[in-house]
Design a binder for these strands. Structure first.
Lengths: 150, 150
DNA sequence: ATTATTTTGTTGTAAATGCAACAAAATTTT
DNA sequence: AAAATTTTGTTGCATTTACAACAAAATAAT
């Protein structure tokens, strides 16, 4: 069976590392861009869902979001019906930075797919999407304290 | 252009998270398994190369390796010709744990490829390999302090 | 041969990460 | 309706992560 996990790990760490270095320019520290980008694209999302989207621990997300708010990139708004949740929205400052984050992401994507035909790009996306769906089941299972048997 | 980076990020974080939880059983803390597996498979490797293989900061690798040594999973051996480098080898304790790490990795790989034909698995591996090659060029470039233009 | 550069390793410091444990609101079960 | 469970959010604590800065050995350039 082909070892795809290590390739994925290497790619993910390399690109994350690059992004973290490049986004220091905007006063974003390690990991923050992940949250900010998604809040801009999904205004009103709550932090619990954000953690699930990103696949990161709830408490890690909580603190990253807290910091983004303190820095003025996003704001938390109370919901009218549900007193427990806090909806997240980008501020003007956040919206100003977003295009740069998007551009960087697009560029990294382009670099990653260098030498790929349009069809190959389509293929890898579809296959990765399926892998992700497969993997997130186990992630939620294990995160909830369950034990995988193998 | 298809957004493959986010899928890759999600997959990588989810699987890393699972591994970290599962390997606590062997007293391995966050990230340590990455280094131990590779030292077992590449005995005599030096930490600088290990950091490059894994795509992690040199100093992070240094500390992870230091801890693995303290815990008795690996040992550092001086080289006879080159006084600067320290070759890394698994100890018996390290070699005893390795099969469990391997088994977990194989299982996660299997989960990731659930529903894939043999050919699809082959395809995604080859495409990922190419992505990795593309991406590591930029990683080394940026890590060395250079600036990407885009 | 000497000088300059690269490679390899370390340590100080600041920050993110994630587990454990808690609390309160919301939802589901009985 | 009351009780049990799930969802959502927070804080304390220990650990990893990585940048900066340094040092020494090895290699390359002059």
């Amino acid at each position: 069976m082909k070892e795809i996990l290590r390739e994925i790990g290497m790619i993910a760490r390399a690109l994350d590392s690059i992004s973290n270095i490049e986004f220091k320019e905007f006063d974003l520290t390690k990991g923050q861009y992940l949250y900010l980008v998604r809040i801009c694209e999904n205004p009103g999302v709550i932090q619990e869902k954000l953690a699930e989207m990103i696949k990161v621990d709830r408490t890690t997300a909580a603190r990253a979001i807290q910091k983004l708010e303190t820095q003025g990139f996003i704001e938390k708004k109370d919901d009218l019906e549900n007193k427990k949740i806090k909806k997240l929205y980008p501020t003007n400052k956040g919206l100003e930075v977003y295009p740069f984050l998007k551009r960087e992401g697009d560029y990294s994507n382009k670099v990653a797919l260098t030498g790929f035909t349009h069809e190959e790009a389509e293929t890898i996306y579809n296959l990765l999407h399926r892998v992700r769906k497969n993997v997130e089941v186990d992630w939620e299972f294990v995160k909830k304290g369950n034990r995988r048997e193998y």
